[in-house]
């Protein structure tokens, strides 16, 4: 590990200690720091933030949302939850002229990651989806986020993009593009291709434009 990596230079994440959030504020966002900042919260930190926001409502999330049996094709996600997570992840990394979250098997990755020792976080993910569906209903009169059109989905997600719930789903979606298939998705080649990585097992110089130029000039 390198303490200098901006990904891990996240001590003192704003908002993580904030226990005054109401349930209504859950999707409104803990802070704006996570968005567009150098700080990318680790999954455990984000999930902790979700749980804290959840605890602030005074009601356990499992009681708020109810438990539904996992779909046969997933280890922990039920069908309804998987459908909404699929819709959200497809807006985070859309499929266009290149593959997106759907081609990377993002939801299957989320299922494996949550089932792998993070089962206690499922209720908070469900809560986020429930809240998002409630917004879909109040703003557009449609009961499910997945049933909205693309522009409406983008509008709703933009409104919650600094929330811990969105950060978590974004985190898992983006990670799925690059994760080994053992974690449930189809990566990592989907991500490697998207990000412009020459994916070879070994490289030889020149590595980039400037060291090629350096050699050509005999520096």
């Amino acid at each position: 590990m390198n303490k200098r990596d901006v990904n891990t230079a996240h001590s003192g994440q704003p908002g993580l200690g904030n226990r005054e959030l109401s349930r209504r504020q859950f999707l409104a966002g803990l802070s704006t720091a996570a968005k567009g900042s150098l700080i990318v919260l680790s999954v455990p930190a984000i999930l902790t933030a979700c749980r804290q926001a959840d605890e602030s409502t005074g009601t356990p999330a499992s009681e708020q949302t109810g438990d539904t049996a996992a779909s046969p094709q997933y280890r922990i996600l039920n069908e309804a939850l998987a459908t909404e997570l699929d819709a959200i992840s497809a807006r985070i990394v859309p499929t266009d002229d290149t593959p997106g979250a759907r081609e990377a098997g993002s939801v299957r990755f989320m299922d494996v990651v949550l089932a792998d020792g993070r089962q206690d976080q499922l209720a908070t993910i469900e809560l986020g989806v429930t809240e998002l569906n409630a917004r879909a209903n109040s703003q557009f009169g449609v009961t499910l986020f997945s049933a909205l059109n693309e522009a409406q989905q983008i509008e709703l997600l933009t409104a919650i993009e600094s929330s811990p719930f969105f950060s978590t789903v974004r985190y898992l979606t983006v990670a799925s593009l690059f994760a080994m298939p053992q974690y449930g998705g189809t990566g990592p080649d989907v991500g490697y291709n998207l990000i412009g990585m020459t994916h070879a097992h070994a490289y030889t110089p020149p590595f980039g434009y400037y060291d090629a130029d350096y050699a050509a000039r005999g520096e």
Partner: peptide, 27 residues
Amino acid sequence: HPHRGLPMGTALSAGLFGGASWGSDFK
């Protein structure tokens, strides 16, 4: 490399220079 050369780490942090961190411009 800003993110230790890690593709997943880089994608998770994308947006440092004002670019999109999700959506169609994120790629």
